[in-house]
Design a protein around this nucleic acid. Structure first.
Lengths: 341, 341
DNA sequence: GCTGTATCCAAAAGCGCTTTCAATTGGCTT
DNA sequence: AAGCCAATTGAAAGCGCTTTTGGATACAGC
């Protein structure tokens, strides 16, 4: 039988309401009473029943999240783990926990979110991926329920994202600074905003330096190793091939790297490479990859923060939060002789 | 104002208790009434308030978990993501959700767990790592609160783990089958059970085939790339060096691989490698690594399952669940000429 | 016709907490 | 001394649900 505020109240010789007020640091309670009650709580080992509090206050101090379905494994894993870390850190700093639920199909995901929202299980929802016309977003908007999207959206919703145009611009700029003039771009699926934005950043940088852009230097693919492999063999067989590549994702670069290895080309001597996301592996590959760190931890951190703000005050927030990126230069894009220590 | 069972009851012309019974599929309710009530619930868009139910039934249908603090990044990320996937899949299949909370120090972790347990926030706890004399384990045992540990423990608690002796035996056996006789073992920190167990498996396999074991072929280190690098340079400088290695962790193998690369050795021709955990990267490296898949997803899955069983029925369960491993043979241990397709 | 026994449902208590409303006190003013 | 205000606390209602208890109805057996 757990200890309740009644037990504390009785022992302290006050009413349950007083104990409750002590719990929530109510201002109109005398210091003396507060201290006395707190002592008794310690003594009795009292702990607040969260459910009961939630029921009456209609607040759960919990953020909800639907587990993303397995997608591009490697990046996803890294992204997911880092992201969660950011989310929970900021959440727990504000007294919130994170509730996760799984959905193995789009329909199930919606059901799960509905259950969380309608069942008053959480105070807000964090969304990790958005599809076009996402029914979950539609549902949440319709309910007027607080939520934040980590990623890009055209819609008028709270979201946290990177400036991908600028990121690609920076990456390209870096290659240009290393003396490259023939720079290619290995993109992802062309309908994704991230592909579009990064391509634009690449274009901007190239144009800014009056560098020619051959259409055949721009290749589209998936976020897969194979895509990189294929792009590599295509590009290296061009009569006038690029000396450097900006690549949409580290995974794709691994494919390129593997292909180059097989063909006996060396990185960065024969081809310099810069890609995106700076997964842990980027540092471990040989040579280590230059990569744009998109601040995954911070994406989670900011999302959590913005969501909690949205929950707590009704002031309209700036809808879009941009998390800064950072180009991490490693050997794959350095115009130096390799220098293994 | 959300719709409650009272609203449903009124509209259906029954009492709230009847609605409640319909919700929980109480047997003593007529099919007809049940159908009628369910129709009304649909109509009104009723959803059960989870908090209220939890309050009275003293069940939350939630499992709790403390986020591991950042450790060996790469493996952790992979492990964590896969693990969570396993946990939530099985949990949601049983109508449970997963609540995560963060602790940035050991003390904070304990506080967090206390809050979950004493605040009746969750029905059980999943622990991801165990230290010697883990205060969290002590606390949970003391409370008699259901929990499961993913990993090894000497104590009499519910846990889910691999058979690491057998796994190492299999890995070594495989190398022997490939014709190797001089096989080394690159271990992890010597006080960890996982290191001890895997070393034992290696020994068993070697002894089983009457193969000599040089003490200098056994090297201890950390779960770090650098450890592999160092082990490699040590081993390759031995007068009688091994032709194959069993390595405690894929990350360590990456270090070995990098070192070998620098020195111009080739894998598997000059040195064959088998390691553990089969992280996503193992497949992507060149050459792809042979690795023992320890079934991370299933570790989570089983942990979730065992915990829910422990929560739901009081029957004593088998304390230890062993998740099967599987050796994935890739090029790093194949005694063939490399054959890139 | 009366009791027995199923079956189905309603009434009401209560889970542990917050919060409104009112009561009590002591110190000040007039 | 009466009145008033502020500060502090208590009583009680109620959040939405489950569950116990018992009432109503129907039908069988005596």
């Amino acid at each position: 039988m757990p200890i309740t505020i009644k037990d504390v109240a009785k022992k302290a010789g006050v009413s349950p309401s007083t104990v409750s007020r002590v719990l929530s640091n109510h201002p109109r309670i005398s210091k003396e009473t507060a201290r006395k009650v707190k002592t008794i709580m310690e003594e009795l080992g009292y702990h607040q029943n969260v459910m009961a509090r939630s029921l009456v206050s209609n607040k759960t101090y919990t953020l909800g999240m639907v587990l993303p379905r397995p997608a591009e494994e490697l990046f996803q894993n890294h992204f997911f783990a880092e992201n969660i870390r950011g989310i929970t850190t900021q959440a727990s700093r504000n007294g919130y926990d994170l509730l996760m639920t799984a959905g193995h199909s789009e329909a199930e995901e919606l059901t799960a979110v509905t259950r969380l929202v309608k069942g008053r299980r959480v105070d807000g929802i964090i969304l990790l991926q958005s599809r076009r016309n996402d029914p979950i977003i539609a549902f949440l908007r319709n309910e007027g329920f607080p939520f934040v999207l980590i990623g890009h959206s055209e819609e008028e919703i709270l979201c946290v994202d990177n400036d991908n145009v600028q990121a690609a611009f920076d990456a390209t700029q870096h290659l240009i600074a290393q003396g490259h003039e023939r720079i290619g771009f290995v993109s992802g699926p062309p309908h994704l905003t991230v592909s579009i934005d990064r391509l634009e950043g690449y274009r901007k940088a190239m144009n800014g330096h009056w560098l020619p852009m051959q259409p055949e230097w721009i290749v589209e693919g998936e976020f897969l190793q194979e895509s990189g492999y294929r792009a590599m063999s295509y590009l290296m067989n061009l009569p006038e091939r690029p000396t450097a590549l900006v690549v949409i994702d580290d995974i794709v670069t691994f494919g390129i790297l593997r292909g180059l290895n097989e063909l006996g080309y060396r990185v960065p001597d024969d081809l310099s490479l810069v890609s995106f996301n700076n997964i842990a592996l980027a540092e471990l590959s040989s040579p280590p990859l230059s990569s744009v760190d998109i601040g995954i931890y911070q994406l989670g951190y900011m999302a959590s923060q913005q969501l909690i703000r949205a929950i707590q005050d009704d002031h309209p927030l700036p809808l879009r939060t941009i998390v800064p990126h950072r180009l991490i230069v490693r050997e794959s894009s350095l115009n130096l002789k390799r220098n293994w220590s």
